[in-house]
Design a protein around this nucleic acid. Structure first.
Length: 367
DNA sequence: GCGATTTGACCCGC
DNA sequence: GCGGGTCAAATCGC
């Protein structure tokens, strides 16, 4: 019997597929009616967004199925003599972890894990070891001098690896060219419940908080829905620079989503609510997330966050926005693929009223 | 004392 | 054999 989650998941896939087909039809009509390259470019990007959303969803779905299988097969020993790297050194490790087969997961799935890279620019070269607060708790487990690199690479893993079996890791390396830029490579997605996201200040000043556990959003679909509505209302495409080859349309998001991640429904942008960082962020996703057509140029940078006035891209405090600016005139600067906007069907309430077709078709595009 | 970081060593893939 | 990724003992800091 099909579960509600599977039903929601398939419905979401169907809706996105339907939307993509309609967008293709629209592009066909636009191409036949006009030679406006701007319109065609926009259509390509809309299609790319749908395509990537579907890819992400499908990937997430298969991952969840794997998790179900893994959880169910608790009595099955998987390569009990293989370590996290797949290396045969079970002696010491098994002392700590016994024959807990979950420990073996990364060795089997490392190449299947999603990997993406952010470039984070910090304010000054001095005073910051690197970008730190991205909403998760990391524990440094190694540092390595990399051949040809001026600065060493630091290795971090989730603090809750052992407690909550969270296998997310990240690598941080300062750029050779610009010491104020850090390349952060994330590998794997968080399965822990300790992520935090930035939220708008609450109405009551005596209950102000700047971070909230993501589980709040899982358990408050109404609030998430409101946030999505806010995202919808603030989503816009700025095409004023379309004639400039160097600049592509801007997609804007409310800053509420600055840390929304696919695994826990939050974006993987660093959490900047503490106001300690100012900089630009770019995200490069691995081909695992992208179709061959889309992965050709899947790179964009966001606008600048100003901690002095808590603004993203110069937007006001009431409706701060993140301006996502494509660095290349590609089909990959969409908000969907670019910021890993995948709605995890498991992470949402079964009856969460999110209609992707309506969401995208009714979005407030400004042309 | 406990948790986080450092750092040399080990292991694996290429 | 080399380079990258990870481990784990030693060390540090609160």
């Amino acid at each position: 019997m099909e579960s509600p989650v599977n039903w929601e998941y398939k419905t979401l896939i169907n809706e996105l597929t339907h939307g993509m087909e309609k967008a293709k039809q629209l592009r066909f009509h636009l191409c036949t009616m006009s030679e406006n390259q701007v319109q065609d470019l926009l259509m390509q990007r809309i299609l790319s967004s749908y395509e990537k959303a579907l890819l992400i969803l499908k990937w997430t779905g298969s991952k969840q199925q794997d998790q179900v299988v893994t959880t169910a097969a608790t009595s099955v020993a998987l390569e009990s003599s293989v370590s996290v790297d797949g290396s045969p050194r079970s002696e010491g490790l098994n002392k700590n972890f016994g024959d807990h087969q979950d420990y073996m997961k990364p060795s089997k799935k490392r190449k299947m894990q999603p990997t993406w890279t952010e470039q984070v620019k910090v304010n000054s070269e001095s005073g910051l070891e690197g970008p730190t607060d991205d909403g998760f708790s990391w524990r440094k487990y190694g540092q390595k001098d990399i051949l040809g690199a001026k600065y060493p690479r630091s290795y971090y893993r989730c603090t809750y690896r052992l407690v909550q079996d969270c296998w997310a890791t990240k690598q941080v390396q300062r750029s050779d060219d610009d010491p104020t830029i850090f390349d952060i490579t994330y590998r794997g997605t968080h399965t822990c419940n300790h992520s935090t996201i930035a939220v708008p200040p609450p109405a009551s000043p005596d209950k102000q908080e700047t971070k909230r556990d993501i589980s709040d959003y899982h358990h408050q679909p109404q609030q998430l829905n409101q946030t999505l509505s806010s995202l919808k209302s603030n989503l816009r495409v700025n095409t004023e620079d379309l004639n400039n080859d160097e600049v592509s349309p801007h997609f804007s998001f409310p800053s509420t989503f600055a840390s929304y991640d696919s695994e826990n429904c939050y974006f993987p942008f660093p959490n900047l609510v503490d106001g300690t960082h100012q900089g630009t962020y770019s995200v490069t996703y691995s081909p695992l997330f992208l179709s061959p057509a889309a992965s050709e140029s899947n790179y964009f940078t966001t606008g600048t966050y100003n901690p002095m006035n808590s603004n993203w891209g110069g937007a006001n405090l009431q409706h701060p926005e993140i301006d996502i600016v494509s660095a290349h005139a590609s089909t990959a600067n969409s908000p969907i693929g670019g910021v890993e906007f995948s709605i995890d069907p498991v992470g949402l309430e079964p009856h969460f009223p999110f209609n992707p077709t309506e969401f995208f078709t009714n979005s407030n595009f400004e042309c």
